[in-house]
Amino acid sequence: MAVESIDRFTVVSNAEQQYSVWFPGRPLPLGWQAAGFEGTRAECLAHIEEIWQDLRPLGLRTALATGEAA
């Protein structure tokens, strides 16, 4: 049987550049997209730790940046 391990996850992110993990092979929840990394949950979380530098939602970061620029 073609079985994929139950401990496989895929890194996903939303429009606010918030990251999390999702189940491969299942439809992505609305507003989330695959971020190009798969692994065990722990591997995914370690990857996220590397790539998710600013925990503020993107909208806020942008607003503050333009606000300060103005």
Binding site: N14, S20, V21, P29, L45, W52
Partner: peptide
């Protein structure tokens, strides 16, 4: 970020 991604997960039930 790791802990956040682990506990705050995509909401598959939130509508459009």
């Amino acid at each position: 970020p790791d802990l956040t991604a682990d506990r705050f997960v995509p909401d598959p039930f939130a509508g459009p």
